[in-house]
Amino acid sequence: MDSRSGEMLVFVKVVETGSFSAAAQLLNLSPSAISKVVTRMEERLGVLLFQRSTRQMSLTAEGREFHDSCVRILDDIDEAEQGVSQRSASIRGLLRVNVSLPFGTHYVVPLLPEFAQRYPEIAVDISLSDTRIDLQRESVDVAIRMGPLNDGSFRARSLGRSRRVVVAAPSYLQRHGTPVVPDDLVRHHCLNFNFRRSLDEWPFIINGHTTQLTVSGGIMTNNGETMRQLTLDGLGVSRLGMFHVYEDIKAGRLVELLANYNAGDVEDINIIFSSQRHLPLRVRAFIDFMVEKLRIEFA
């Protein structure tokens, strides 16, 4: 009996988890059994799949190529079995999603009831975090992120764009006054993120040129949703994505400041997923649903 598909599964899990012991725990096997499977595959293929040392293990070039092929083959097997299953009409399985906290809170989570009604056999495991994650290492199927795409090993589909704006609550402006020009911000409490120090400089167009203005304040946070709430509470001036504060500005809860000096920098909003050719049906369903429902344009 040909057991190569089982060996491929072992190999893929080792790559995903980063170690023999973690893969062994996931597959209910011993680390030695996992090691023997990988060694047997290397001997049959005549190549090294991993570079091993006492401290770490990494894929070789041949290992990366073989991993991509194994993922496609295992996906094909899974889809073939689903195709002949009596329940093939339904798309099912566990879907792991990671979304930035603001976008997840205001856009994705409100859509989950409709998604669940359309695909009742998909179990959604959603995490909201502004921290960048490794999709493969964290076993995440899809992620939604703002900003440039720096990893060519994943594909993306656009959900829209959003410019950044400087905002404050009316209560804060009543106490501290309204800045008229960017330099006025040096006398204001400017809220900032604590995970990227470069954001202590805010860009403005002054005399036709982009100028980075250093700002400071008494409070920093690690996510946009907390910063929005601090701003709504009147604790300072912040710079956030328009997608995040549009409804607050529309309702008068926040006021856009220094609009004539806005640098016009725009963040792309993308749904990111594996570059493998054959995606599980549940992943395709979620991606298509989000593209259908969301088109954010605040450029």
Rank of each mutant, 00 (worst) to 15 (best):
A259L: 12
M1K: 03
V38A: 08
A116P: 00
I73Q: 11
I269V: 15
R72L: 15
S19K: 09
M290T: 09
V12N: 06
E201W: 09
V181S: 14
F273Q: 00
S198G: 08
V180N: 11
R4M: 14
A123T: 05
F273L: 09
V37E: 01
Q212G: 10
G224S: 11
S30T: 08
R137F: 06
F103Y: 09
G241P: 04
P170K: 12
D134E: 13
L128R: 04
S30R: 10
L94M: 08
F115C: 09
N192G: 12
V186I: 12
S162Q: 03
N260K: 11
C70E: 03
G252I: 12
K13T: 01
M242R: 12
R118K: 07
G217V: 13
T178W: 11
G217F: 05
I126M: 15
I122D: 04
D288W: 10
E62A: 15
I249W: 07
R197T: 06
V14Y: 00
M227P: 04
T131N: 14
V181T: 12
R187A: 13
R92D: 03
R253D: 09
T178S: 12
I296N: 06
F50G: 08
E247W: 00
R96A: 14
M146P: 00
G252C: 13
S58L: 13
P120N: 10
N222K: 10
L95P: 02
I219D: 09
C70R: 05
L48A: 15
N262T: 03
Y119Q: 07
T214D: 09
N223R: 05
Q174K: 10
A259W: 03
D78I: 01
R92H: 07
N192V: 11
A123D: 04
M57P: 06
S238C: 10
L95H: 01
R96P: 00
F66W: 08
L48H: 11
A285I: 02
R52A: 13
L27H: 04
G46S: 08
I219A: 15
G93K: 06
P148H: 00
L279H: 06
V266H: 02
E267L: 15
D76V: 11
L254W: 02
P179W: 04
I219T: 14
Q25H: 03
E138Q: 14
V97H: 01
L191S: 07
H176C: 12
I249E: 04
I272C: 10
I73R: 11
I287W: 03
A263Q: 01
N262S: 12
Q117E: 01
L111A: 11
Q174D: 04
A285L: 09
L112D: 09
V109A: 15
L9A: 14
L185D: 01
A156N: 02
P102H: 08
R132W: 01
A299E: 10
